[in-house]
Amino acid sequence: MSNSPQVRVAVVQAAPVLFNLEGTLERVASWTARAANTGARLVLFPEAFIPAYPRGLGFGFIVGSRSDAGRRLWQLYNEQSVELPGPAIERLGGIARAHGVFLSIGVIERDRLTRGTLYCTQLYFGPEGALLAKHRKLKPTGSERLIWGEGDGSTLSTVDTPFGRIGGLICWENYMPLARAAMYAKGVDIYLAPTADSRDTWQATMRHIGNEGRCFVLGCNQFVTRDMYPPEVLREEALPAETPHIMSRGGSVIISPFGEVLAGPLWGEEGVLTADLDLGMLTRARLDFDPCGHYGRPDIFRLEVDERERPGATFLRQEAPGDAVSPLPARSR
């Protein structure tokens, strides 16, 4: 009986240089090099790593009004975010290419047309440096809804690699059963779950997804302390007095297709988690449970997923009298 192929993967638990695009890109380069030096072929960074997950900030929102200081803070956040295409994308692709890895990283994406909408986005780069796919968070949670727009089904993305299909969801999207089912139906082998949730209950979610999806799961979070916030941010909005020193304690973890912990969870520090994934385990795990295969009941349950892009407007034009009216996309994303 032949040995199953294996692949080493790495999860980076670190903090960005908060609200600083260029400084964070330098950190991405350094941490990717460290992860690649372990032999990893896939490297995952957390949700909203560039330029920051703005934990503890309210951006001046009160029901019925907004503050000038909050608007200035959001402008700073906006200006340090990422446009596609753009120089930051080229830099990230260069980092992936320099180390020959598949690289997935959470960014705050600025709409290129209006420059007034931000999306919480996960990017996927190949070892040749190309941007292969992106996923925009479908449903920002709680106060995230005040600063981020909603993605649509056109970015429910997966990427084929020599070691299986990768894809996933961001943070509490992983609590959306139908979104998970859509990813399982796409045949995800290595499920990426970047997050900002450092609660103990998140660990149960990661293990459940591995067991339910019969896939490997890479959970990835930041380690952030209060003193990492730059003065220019705190001039616009002070953190609440009760804010603890450790604002995100991490909890990054790697899970097997049986829901078993392979590495981590990592708490209370920055670091790189690695694991050698036995790809044959995917087949063995699906012997008795394949959620969208032999264990599905499409005769009873059906899931319809709309993957069409939903622009804010569609413009119609008529070339000449008598010509058919042709729809034009409002913009290219």
Rank of each mutant, 00 (worst) to 15 (best):
F61A: 14
L73G: 04
V82S: 03
G70Y: 00
G60W: 01
L92T: 03
A69I: 06
N78R: 14
A88I: 02
R91S: 13
G70L: 02
N78W: 03
Q80M: 02
R72T: 09
Q80F: 00
Y77W: 06
R72S: 14
R72I: 11
L84D: 14
L76Q: 11
E83A: 06
R72D: 15
E79D: 15
L73N: 04
E83N: 11
G86Y: 00
G86R: 08
A88P: 02
A88Y: 00
E90W: 02
R72C: 08
V63T: 09
R71K: 07
R72N: 11
Y77F: 13
E83S: 14
W74Q: 11
E79R: 12
L84R: 09
D68K: 00
D68A: 08
G60M: 00
L73H: 01
P87E: 12
W74Y: 15
L73D: 08
R71A: 13
R71H: 07
E79T: 07
G60A: 03
R72V: 15
G86I: 13
S81F: 06
Y77Q: 10
I89R: 05
G64H: 03
G70H: 01
Y77D: 07
D68L: 05
A69W: 01
S65C: 10
R72E: 14
Q75L: 11
I89Y: 05
L92G: 05
I89T: 05
V82G: 13
S67Y: 00
G64E: 04
E79I: 08
S67A: 06
N78V: 04
V63A: 11
S65E: 15
R72A: 14
R71Q: 14
Q80G: 06
L84I: 15
E83D: 13
I62P: 05
L76I: 08
L73Q: 05
S65F: 10
D68E: 14
G64D: 06
V82K: 00
V82P: 10
R72L: 03
R72W: 04
V63R: 14
A88K: 01
G70R: 08
S81T: 05
I62K: 10
P87K: 10
E90Q: 10
I89F: 02
S67G: 08
A69R: 04
F61M: 12
L73K: 08
